[in-house]
Amino acid sequence: MTIRGNPPADFLRRPGKIFDKCRYLWSALLLTLLLISPVQPQSDSTAAQNDDPQMFAAVFVKPGLPEVGIDLESFPYFDRDSSAYAPIYGGDIFPSVYLIFPGKAIAGKRMWFMVSHEEANTFGISTIPVEADTTGMMIASKEVHAGETGQLTLKLELRYIPTHRLLLYRWPNASPEHPGGIPSTEGMKEPMPIGGLMPELWVTDLKGDTLWLNRFPGKIVVVNWWAMFCSPCIEEMPGLNKLVEKYRDKGVEFIAIARNTAEELQDFFTSHRFLYRQTLANEQAAQLMGNVFPRHVIIDQEGRIAFNQSGGSQDKAQELEAVIVRLLEGR
């Protein structure tokens, strides 16, 4: 889900200072928790807490909500009086990252939120399920999306000690010399890079017909990856419908892949209008498109990816139209 706003000031450019101040404190606290905890059979969560503490960076959790250029209190789960947050160093990939602790359970479950400033005027908000181990430490991990198309994933590991309001975190390349690590996509390959050929991918429409997205020679294929629970997906539908009406007779195919069942879609379309040809997601589509909704992909007349971007807004149709026009004009 993508939300537009003004980027916050980047105050975490030097995470070493934060770590130096907290290093001895959180190491001592973590060691104390391990020493006073009763002996338990080794479980996944217990094993996780026994990770080398020198690999994690530490920050204190603050009351309230971060200032990120958008009104976070407009979201139903965020309340400045009962929420808390902690900054996480995101390097050049994520200029600002915050972990938000809402003041109440979400649908009866313990849940955290991550707010990341990903690029100019663009923010991502995502949820993180949380578990508690036998010591009371709260443990979670998050697959964070990065790269030109947002399809590379970096695992962020999180530990929270509620009694001391201390958050520990680490990226994949953390080390004792660089606790917490720095997000990096070096050596990783995008699954659908701009300019690359569209991978073999088939989906089934609501009539049971099979469509191969990479087999529309001479046509432009506009793909929308969406789900019913995604509010930006629904908000952008009126603009997308106008695109369909304007270009469907000009050599452009519009195909939507929904992460829902046929029955759910039939119910949905009794009150919503979406003119893309509707198809159902399968595991191959899910692996290729990822877990971020919506995602827009445009395949050119030669089967190459001309556009691949996650995030939706009411203005997304204008961005897609610019690419369609360029391809139709042979530019």
Results as ranks from 00 to 15, higher is better:
100 I>A: 09
266 Q>N: 14
177 E>V: 03
292 V>C: 06
164 H>P: 01
125 I>K: 03
18 I>A: 12
22 C>F: 02
98 Y>E: 14
105 A>L: 13
3 I>D: 08
69 G>V: 01
289 M>T: 13
125 I>L: 11
215 R>Q: 15
249 D>F: 00
159 R>M: 03
6 N>Q: 09
138 M>C: 06
118 E>P: 03
161 I>R: 00
125 I>R: 02
212 W>V: 04
128 I>D: 11
175 S>H: 04
45 S>R: 15
225 W>H: 12
149 T>I: 05
177 E>F: 03
192 M>Q: 10
90 G>I: 09
309 Q>C: 10
125 I>F: 02
136 G>K: 10
36 I>C: 04
25 L>M: 09
19 F>I: 15
125 I>A: 08
209 D>F: 00
302 E>N: 08
308 N>A: 14
36 I>R: 13
124 G>I: 00
143 E>G: 00
283 E>D: 12
311 G>F: 00
185 T>Q: 05
70 I>G: 03
100 I>C: 08
154 L>T: 07
222 V>Y: 07
250 K>C: 01
134 T>M: 05
249 D>S: 12
46 T>W: 01
78 F>A: 06
224 N>D: 12
235 E>A: 12
312 G>K: 09
149 T>P: 07
184 S>I: 03
45 S>C: 11
278 Q>R: 11
262 A>V: 08
152 L>Q: 10
70 I>T: 05
77 Y>C: 07
270 T>E: 15
296 H>Y: 01
184 S>V: 05
21 K>G: 15
48 A>V: 14
161 I>E: 03
155 K>V: 13
249 D>R: 07
90 G>Y: 07
268 F>W: 11
91 G>S: 12
63 P>F: 00
305 I>N: 11
321 E>Y: 00
100 I>D: 12
